[in-house]
Design a protein around this nucleic acid. Structure first.
Lengths: 343, 343
DNA sequence: ATATTATAGGAAACCGGTTTCCCCATGTCA
DNA sequence: TGACATGGGGAAACCGGTTTCCTATAATAT
């Protein structure tokens, strides 16, 4: 059984208050007394009970993280960034998978809030009424990833998704392609999902290429669904020159389906993804994609929420990080460019 | 500011004790009193402070999870399984990345222990003295994943790694290959790393194929290092017929390097991995590998630790789950077998 | 030498719950 | 009608820390 401060006090022959003072050196303690206390602490291998401290301080040094699915590569890289910063600041993270269900998201947010987390990092792609009312009334700081929503005590971290989608689409259009399709996220995804689609459409329009709704499919952002849609696309004989897939993971599935139908990438069809997960350089062919600074997003999300927890002044409540088009082999029809050796 | 039980008691005109009784119906309360209390609870939107409850109950309903790296696919799938079960039982998980450093592992284990987690799931591939002394003295139940170590209050979840490596190596040997290499985990990996290597060697020996140490390379289980080693292998002109890579993620890097050197898989060299992460079916070519029931391992690890927390009797302290050789295109030199459509 | 000020450290209150202990008001039985 | 069991609910102790408040002693000033 773990030792308590009372036991330490007893064997050191002092009061609990003195032990506490030694632990936190919150008030001066005579060196010889301090020594006795330290001896006692060592003898009992005493560690202060952090639950009791949390109760007094009303701080748990814990950050709640609500994500869609930890097994998704984008998410796990993000969480890694969050954890790194949190740990460096002495915080732990509690992670909860919502599996994309809005009801579960709400449930998790309330649960974390009730569990006395000091702050929350919330990754989502849509905000329903219940989300908004939670965000409005929450008494802890929150970092919202991928969503822009203006509310006090909220910081937003994201990239410009519609511009990013516009850029990658334009890359295809500049090659002269007129039959470029897209696999988009489900319609409920009001933010990233919708924005990327908007960017795609806008690019078509600005380049004077008519929008063809047959060229657009909707998938659930995982490899399995990417595969399903990839097969569909090939079977429908749409003769696409290029395909922009809203997420790398799904793109892998789609490419696999294309290969399984006997076509070649990029020779028969060029493919681009979105995210630049680590795997994208190692797929064969390596995947052209839109790089989000995922690690940085995670770190910033954690840093911001910690700053808010610790009462620091925030001057920027919405952070839009730069994206980057990373050209690789999946769109290199003309010249085969081998992957630059990862350092 | 969140309401307290005292405020509820006041506006309901009862004592704190009565409110507590209503909340937990631990003792009968007159219906009309209960009603008044419930009204007050609703009026104040009162939620009992879980830190205070934890202090009384000496239970935090939290499980600590120490892993190497959440961005590793094997790990994130494992964690997903853990989280699922934990959530179903009303537990939260705190995750901590050790980045494979033994010192950090110890630090994290102690920290979690001190943070009053009710149990720990620990994924590691080696146990140093300090680990063992922690495991011996910890006052909370622990699930050890991937390691077999006999100690009270410890449950082990793993597959038979050496048999699994033996099986996949034998698959190559039965094809008549005599030049089959392996990329193994670092030497510090006493468990999974060493065991998989032992299985490889044993298979060679049992099939009368001499062991060639030039055919064995060591890598850090990530795609980047897999790439580095892949290049090395090709440059060394070892003329390997097959390559068994100790982890799928690393295998992807290795395959990429092989392609970048202008060789073909499986035509020029066959490759097999280990783990069967979801990505393995979607790589091109799909990867032959040893399937570990990762999700199940995570779920069992959580389930076991929860059973222990809740005082249930455990009859099996060491669980060795079955593995399975999954043959796919990366070893299908002879016949091209398209990927069976994922349902 | 006396008055004043620091300093060390103890007692007790507090954080927000749960639970034991006890009392009071009923209801039941003889 | 008196003795006794029963159920409801309040006061207080408790979980394990931190902090305020206060006192006794030592140090400094006059």
């Amino acid at each position: 059984m773990a030792a308590t401060i009372k036991q330490v006090a007893e064997i050191a022959g002092v009061s609990k208050a003195t032990v506490s003072r030694v632990l936190n050196d919150s008030k001066p303690v005579r060196p010889e007394t301090r020594e006795r206390v330290l001896q006692a602490i060592k003898a009992l291998d005493f560690q202060p009970n952090s639950t009791a401290r949390s109760l007094v301080f009303k701080k748990s040094r814990t950050i709640g993280v609500v994500i869609t699915d930890i097994a998704n590569l984008f998410v796990s890289v993000l969480v890694k960034g969050i954890e790194k910063i949190a740990f460096n600041h002495g915080y732990n993270i509690i992670i909860c998978n919502s599996h994309g269900s809005a009801e579960k998201e709400i449930e998790l947010l309330l649960m974390l809030h009730n569990k006395q987390v000091d702050g929350i990092v919330f990754l989502t792609s849509r905000l329903k009424k219940e989300h908004k009312s939670f965000l409005r009334e929450a008494s802890v700081p929150i970092s919202l990833v991928n969503v822009s929503y203006d509310e006090s005590n909220l910081v937003g971290i994201r990239i410009d998704n519609s511009k990013a989608a516009y850029d990658i689409t334009s890359y295809f259009l500049k090659k002269g392609f007129t039959r470029g399709g897209m696999i988009r996220a489900p319609l409920e995804d009001q933010y990233t999902g919708q924005e990327r689609f908007d960017g795609y459409r806008q690019a078509l329009q600005d380049h004077g290429v008519p929008f063809n709704e047959d060229f657009v499919k909707t998938g659930t952002l995982d490899a399995r669904d990417g595969y399903r849609i990839g097969r569909e696309i090939i079977k429908e004989n749409l003769n696409l020159e290029a395909l922009f897939v809203a997420c790398d993971l799904m793109a892998f599935g789609t490419m696999k389906a294309i290969f399984d139908q006997g076509l070649k990438i990029p020779d028969d069809i060029e493919v681009a993804g979105f995210d630049d997960v680590p795997m994208s350089s190692y797929y064969h062919p390596s995947l052209t994609t839109v790089r989000q600074p995922i690690d940085k997003m995670g770190r910033l999300a954690a840093e911001m929420v910690i700053n808010l927890i610790e009462g620091k002044k925030i001057d920027q409540w919405e952070i839009v990080l730069p994206h980057e088009i990373v050209l690789r082999d999946s769109t290199a029809k003309d010249a085969y460019k081998p992957l630059p050796t990862p350092e």
